[in-house]
Nucleic acid binder design. Structure first.
Lengths: 259, 259
DNA sequence: ACAAAAGTGTTGTCAATACACCCATGT
DNA sequence: ACATGGGTGTATTGACAACACTTTTGT
């Protein structure tokens, strides 16, 4: 973001207190702060058929109008807890994948109807038992390949959800470089080829299998061998199985070729 | 963040609509969403005397209670604009440095009095004309070296502001690796030694000057030479002056030694 | 049954690159 | 004293070749 965009001069130094108007609440004359609606939106990413996909929900009363799963945050609810709850609601699965806060969007840029701030979360999930469960009245959810969002004929997204998805995808692509989060896209046990295909799908590139193997195995805590092999499926040498290790960062990172 | 922490079962699927309760607003029976107070908090970082420092404000009625500058967001105000306004309020300078959103904190973890969500912003600034201007009634602001925050005798921070500062410092340290943002800590024109001292102060390490020079100059768009030199100050060969270039990322990055 | 072919995963080699460490020179 | 330029050894990486294990296909 470029440096401070020129602020509205009428607003500068409106507060006498540099701590902000929040400080007034400690005084004798308590003012009620402006309250706004806070919602949580989820960017759920997974790999399906070798393509990076995001879960979008088709709104009931708006044909061809797609939105991210999410909803309002309860007043006393923790943001992370709210996001975790919405994740279970939308997918029906629990205890798998990775969930982290992405960014908060808000202010004038949003549609008047949904004015307020939206705290976006990013989740990386293995290929779920599709389609996600549909309780009664639950709108239809579809996994959209992220490349199709920009293409003609793609879904029309609500409010600023397209921007949120773009940010989430870029965050995921970047995090693959310096964290072992690629394993969050895989099942509990996976092969190095599975892991490599995560990178290839997310980055849209081809990776050299031997080099990838060397890199992953030489990074302590990235993966740990299970000691078993895949049962041969359709031909080819059975691959060794791995689980994700305890590393939280990759040193040195697994960098993308050029950007 | 580990996978979805076990959500409150009583809450799961409380909504019949997977889009979330937000969807109800499009129906005939409009419910008022729970509204909470949204504030903006700023982590302002700069370099002073070779140390990375953060600006803290001493609250009026609470001795030894320090807080980040910030305040409530107006209902119709853009988050980024609000942060930019607070930045000018706190420092008195405009159009310099770098400002970006850091993360949003909220929910139960916050003090009851300041319940609600706080959108934290991170600013990287050159050494400002110190101390920051003090209009009447403005509480005293001090630049605290970030190492002293963890040391005994350091400031006692309000609410979760210590966590916010830690996150902001780590974000800044990480961003120095793969972006040219180190220049945001410098004046408009700077020497490569100035730039190197940014890295050394932020990371708490010593860097080899020749290697650093090679690395920076070989990264296109990191810095551009001005064509002048510093007037010799106190002995030593005058250094060439540079401005920051137009690059937005460093490829390959300038990695920290081990983490 | 047997052999050959094809598909997949694993191991090994080599060159190009990037980097840490050190020395030399100019002002 | 400090900025700048150059040199050398080591570690990492990219490209590619070779090998191992399995299924499929043909005779």
């Amino acid at each position: 973001m470029p440096p401070a965009s020129p602020p509205d001069p009428a607003r500068v130094s409106r507060d006498a207190d540099a701590v902000g108007d929040r400080g007034r609440r400690h005084g004798s004359a308590t003012v009620t702060p402006p309250a706004v609606a806070v919602s949580v939106d989820l960017v759920l990413l997974t790999l399906r058929a070798g393509r990076l996909c995001v879960l979008l929900i088709q709104r009931a009363r708006r044909p061809a109008d797609w939105a991210l799963p999410g909803g309002f945050v309860d007043g006393d609810e923790d943001l992370d807890a709210s996001a975790a709850r919405r994740l279970v609601d939308a997918t029906g699965v629990t205890g798998t994948g990775h969930l982290e806060q992405l960014r908060t969007y808000g202010g004038q840029r949003r549609e008047p109807l949904t004015c307020g701030v939206s705290v976006a979360y990013l989740a990386l999930l293995p290929n779920l038992p599709q389609p996600p469960p549909r309780p009664a009245r639950r709108p239809d959810g579809h996994w959209w390949p992220v490349e199709e969002l920009a293409a003609p004929g793609g879904p029309i997204l609500a409010v600023d959800h397209r921007r949120i998805v773009i940010d989430g995808v870029e965050r995921a692509r970047a995090k693959l470089e310096y964290t072992p989060l690629a394993a969050a896209f895989c099942e509990d046990e996976f092969t190095l080829a599975d892991l490599r295909r995560v990178y290839e799908a997310a980055w849209g590139v081809g990776l050299d299998a031997p080099n990838f193997r060397r890199k992953v195995l030489s990074t302590p805590g990235f993966v740990v061998p299970v000691g078993r092999r895949t049962s041969p499926r359709g031909g080819g040498r059975p691959a060794e199985l791995y689980r994700r290790g305890m590393a939280t960062a990759l040193h040195p990172p697994l960098l993308r070729r050029s950007v």
